[in-house]
C-alpha cells in the first residue's frame, strides 16, 4: 500500500507526470480532437468520466483476480471491462445529449483504444493504490489530459489565423507545438516527488 498523500497523487498525475506530455499516453485523441476548444472540452469531460469508471472497475478486477490467483488474465479483463464501460457512456450520451454525441463523433468509441485509459488502470495497479487513491489518481490524470488538450486547442485555434510555411501544415506543426508544451511541462518536474 502506498502512503502518498492524495494531494501529491493528484498533482503528480495532472501536471508533473502529465499523461499526454510526459508519459505519451493518448496521443491520438490529443492530436485528433484538439482543433477546436469546444470539442476538446467535451472530449476532456468524456475522458475524465471514462477514467473514473475504468479506475473503479480496474480496482475491482484486480482484487478479484488476486483472490482467485489468475493475474495472467489481468490485461484481457481490463480491456474487456473498459470497453464495456465506454459502450455504456456512449449509450448514455447518445440518449441524453445528441448534440454532444454528434460533436464527439467517432472519438467516443475510440476512447476504448486509448492507451491513456488502459495505462491508468495498469499504473494504478503497479503503484498499489488503495480505492480512494485510485479515484484521485484517475481524476488527476483526466484533469491533466483535459488541461493538455485545452492548451493545444487554444494554440491551434490561434494558428489557424497565422501564416505558416506550407511544409509545416498539419500533423508536423501539431507535433512541434506539442513538443514546446511538453518542454514547458518539464518545468513542473520535482514538484510532486519523482514517482513515475
Amino acid at each position: 500500500m502506498q502512503d502518498e498523500s492524495l494531494y501529491l497523487i493528484f498533482l503528480n498525475a495532472a501536471v508533473v507526470n502529465n499523461f499526454v506530455l510526459a508519459l505519451f499516453l493518448g496521443i491520438c485523441p490529443f492530436l485528433g480532437v484538439s482543433a477546436k476548444k469546444e470539442t476538446a472540452w467535451n472530449m476532456g469531460l468524456a475522458v475524465i468520466f471514462v477514467m473514473l469508471v475504468s479506475s473503479v472497475s480496474a480496482y475491482g478486477i484486480n482484487w478479484l483476480l488476486t483472490e482467485l490467483d489468475l493475474l495472467f488474465l489481468r490485461l484481457i479483463c481490463y480491456i474487456a471491462v473498459i470497453a464495456s464501460a465506454v459502450q455504456l457512456v456512449e449509450m448514455l450520451v447518445k440518449r441524453y445529449s445528441p448534440a454532444l454525441f454528434r460533436s464527439l463523433g467517432i472519438f467516443l468509441p475510440l476512447i476504448t483504444t486509448n492507451c491513456a485509459i488502459l495505462g491508468l488502470a495498469l499504473f494504478q495497479t503497479a503503484k498499489e493504490y488503495d480505492f480512494v487513491q485510485s479515484l484521485v489518481y484517475a481524476l488527476g490524470a483526466g484533469g491533466g489530459f483535459m488541461l493538455a488538450l485545452m492548451l493545444m486547442a487554444g494554440l491551434r485555434e490561434k494558428l489557424e489565423l497565422a501564416r505558416v510555411p506550407s511544409v509545416s501544415q498539419g500533423a508536423a506543426m501539431s507535433l512541434m507545438l506539442a513538443g514546446l508544451l511538453s518542454l514547458a511541462f518539464m518545468g513542473f518536474a520535482g514538484l510532486g516527488g519523482s514517482h513515475g
Binding site: 508519459l23 511544409v167 507535433l175 512541434m176 513538443g179 514546446l180 518539464m186
Partner: peptide, 18 residues
C-alpha cells in the same frame, strides 16, 4: 526526454512533407 520525441517525429514529418 519527452519533448525530444515530439520534436524528432515532427522533424521527420516536415521532411516527408517537403
Amino acid at each position: 526526454l519527452p519533448p525530444g520525441g515530439f520534436f524528432v517525429l515532427g522533424a521527420w514529418l516536415l521532411l516527408f512533407n517537403w
